[in-house]
Design a protein around this nucleic acid. Sequence first.
DNA 1: TCTACGATCTTT
DNA 2: AAGATCGTAGAT
Length: 204
Amino acid sequence: MTAPPQPLAPEAFAGECLAVARRLLGCHLVRGEVVVRITEVEAYRWPDDSANHCFRGRTPRNAPMFGPPGTAYVYRCYGVHQMLNLVTQPAGEGAAVLIRAAEPVAGHGIIASRRGGRTGPDSLAGPGRLAAALAIDGALNGRSVCAPGELQVCAGRPPERVRCGPRVGIDYAEPAHRDAPWRLAVTDSAWVSHPARFTHEEQR
DNA sequence: TCTACGATCTTT
DNA sequence: AAGATCGTAGAT
């Protein structure tokens, strides 16, 4: 019997958003019997990021993003898909990391059943697919992932290399933010959405 | 109240 | 290339 993995502490999320995003790659999301390794993320930065939901200030929807680091921010997109974000930086600053893709570690059968029998990257690559595979919905919005509960983030296997490129689906943002390479992914993982849209290897 | 529009995915 | 599907935000 091994001890259960230790969840990341709030301090792990309290740093600058893009740096936290980079460190979240390779970490594990633990949701009951299902464990996945994060392979793709996007940083929504603060305060100068016109793609960020918080760019024009606090609203009822984005309020969880101003909460303490390690808070889950879950919202519905296109009336259909749930998007899972993890809040970064100190409370009061609206910055978060969108979790866009992951690869399975445990609970393959549960994932497949939630994804209509799919077992390949189609089951976990893309933020809506990931949320569906983990059964994530608005019930988790505003909850901490640092305390025992329905979702945890734990240390995993860090990536050897990272690639990056512009974030997906934010053409409405100002050009400087639309084009900024704030989407990061584990190089060599097949469990990544839009694999053709990366522009750089390991910018840091 | 009314309207427009998504940090997407699926099917055509 | 476009429909699904609905909460949010900004305008009226």
